[in-house]
Simulated scan of single mutants.
Amino acid sequence: MAPLLGVLAGAGLFLVWWSAWEESGGRAARLPRASRLDDLLRNAGIEKVSGLGLITTCFGLAVFVALVFFVVTRSMPISCCFGLFGGWFPVALVRWRALKRTAVLRQLWPDVVDHLRSAIRAGLSLPEALIQLGDKGPEELRHLFRDFGADYRSGGQFDPALNRLKDRLADPVADRIVEALRLTRDVGGSDLGRLLGTLSEFLRESARTRSELEARQSWTVNAARLAVAAPWIVMVLLASRPEAVAAYNTPLGAAVLLGGLVVSVVCYSIMLRIGALPQDERVLR
């Protein structure tokens, strides 16, 4: 009898442990976390390219640029350096587009909030207020709110459609607006109009201040980029001379190129980190 009780107790403990493990795994499966590259692509407004597709593009462009420089210079060290630059170019382009889109959205969100406030004060429900932004909202965001309207009409469920809208917008300000609307719909309340009015004023003041800071910062960043690019522009000119190519084909020349590449990357990264303005992070996913 005692061995049987021991076996049953052990089986019970194992089942408890196993159920807890399944719950944790199920929760992770229900809430998958996107990779940083996927987040970057969504921030840039690129919806039809995945993180794997971006990596493949970087690799293909790196190989192509390296082959072109090798055909022109017949120098493997020089070709590898510029191949690395070519492979980094798609990521840099996507980051630039993400920053540009964020700056544009920063100017549009106050208008979006004002449209929502006016629609809600006119008696429209929250789904209707969001759907009408597909026709009356800012031009750059209308297609996203039209997609929200299609999702809501097809399923009739507000929360799933709102989650998909938040994923498409991929913006910290949009996260706050969406969660405020969700909370208001769940718990009710009569202060939504006042909340949206305060939020609109805050967003306008924040966008104005940040635009002034970015304007003052731009000349420093551009000067640093020129300082980093200048040596490699000189390298391209030197690659047209056979004696320079022969010098860089030696182990010492390759070491000089590698050291210059490391210094350029490290110094440029430090410059960006020191001079970067604080960025809003998406915490309400």
Rank of each mutant, 00 (worst) to 15 (best):
I270T: 09
R210H: 05
R225I: 05
Q107P: 00
L199K: 09
R121G: 00
D147L: 12
W109I: 00
L199R: 12
A254R: 02
L199P: 01
L272T: 08
R182Q: 14
F59H: 11
K166M: 15
G197C: 02
L183H: 11
L238R: 03
H115Y: 11
S19Q: 15
E22N: 08
G123D: 05
E201K: 15
G275P: 04
T56V: 13
A276W: 04
F64Y: 07
F14G: 07
A254Q: 07
S206T: 13
I120N: 10
I120V: 14
A254H: 06
T56S: 12
P242M: 06
R216K: 15
I274C: 06
L169P: 06
K166S: 15
G156H: 03
G137E: 02
I131K: 08
E201P: 05
W88R: 09
R216E: 14
Y268N: 03
R36Q: 14
G149S: 12
V266G: 03
L126D: 03
W88K: 06
F14Y: 14
I46K: 00
L258H: 01
Y248L: 15
R164L: 13
L99K: 15
Q132T: 15
V262W: 09
A9K: 03
R42S: 14
Q279A: 11
L67A: 08
Y268D: 10
S218C: 09
G260A: 03
R273N: 01
P138E: 10
A227K: 05
C267F: 15
R208H: 13
E212Y: 05
G193D: 10
L93H: 09
W18A: 12
W232P: 03
E212I: 04
E201I: 12
R176A: 03
